[in-house]
């Protein structure tokens, strides 16, 4: 069970984790991009955290929609419209709900990823955030289907996302800024996949606390 209070806590923790990893994410982005991913994400989630007090008693849909709208107007980089779309699509699934069950969680995740795909027109294997998000989502589904609890499912998803980040080191970027580098992007991990991993890990750490 995921409550709106827990969702607020998750978002606050994501803000902290992104801030801690700001430089790390920028360094990863600098190797094959423009070096702003950590800075962009930190700007975005800082702004989200400021809005959370206003929506702390709202339903999960409102909280996620506020998150989405804040990200699109503060992040600046590609991650803005991509994560913004993901949060907005997830918000639609849980509109008006304060308590979410496993089915809601799966649907949110599914719609969120579909949103990223719709917005960025990428697929798995193009060295983007999708290479962390899709394996994580598949692992959540597998875990829940086999009777695991959602905290257990997120532990497994975190591992899958981490493997996904490692996988991005082995492939060439064909979407996003890093695609300008062609084969020279091989050997470096993707910044967006890394931030997606950190977000999933933070969800896991929060609900497993």
């Amino acid at each position: 069970m995921l409550t709106s209070d827990l969702l607020i806590e998750i978002l606050k923790n994501i803000t902290k984790v992104i801030e801690t990893n700001k430089q790390y994410l920028c360094d990863i982005d600098a190797a094959i991009g423009d070096g702003d991913h950590g800075f962009n994400m930190n700007k975005g989630f800082k702004a989200v955290a400021e809005k959370l007090d206003v929506v702390k008693d709202s339903d999960c849909g409102t909280i996620l929609k506020t998150t989405a709208m804040t990200l699109i107007s503060t992040v600046g980089g590609a991650a803005g419209p991509l994560y913004g779309t993901a949060f907005l699509k997830a918000a639609k699934v849980v509109d008006g709900k304060k308590d979410l069950d496993n089915e809601d969680i799966v649907k949110m995740f599914d719609e969120g990823i579909k949103g990223v795909i719709m917005r960025g027109k990428a697929e798995q294997g193009e060295k983007t955030m999708l290479d962390a998000l899709i394996p994580a989502f598949e692992e959540i589904k597998r875990a829940l289907d086999s009777g695991s609890s959602s905290p257990e499912a997120f532990i497994r998803a975190t591992k899958a996302a981490h493997d996904g980040v490692e996988y991005t080191k082995t492939i060439r970027a064909t979407k996003g800024r890093a695609s300008y580098l062609g084969d020279r992007s091989i050997g470096h991990q993707d910044a967006g996949a890394t931030s997606s991993y950190l977000i999933i890990k933070t969800i896991s750490d929060t609900i497993n606390k």
Binding site: D36, K43, T74, G76, G84
Partner: peptide, 14 residues
């Protein structure tokens, strides 16, 4: 062009 706070980037609301 750019973000609300003058950085390089784009902003859907702008």
């Amino acid at each position: 062009g750019g973000t609300e706070d003058g950085r390089i980037g784009t902003d859907a609301v702008k």
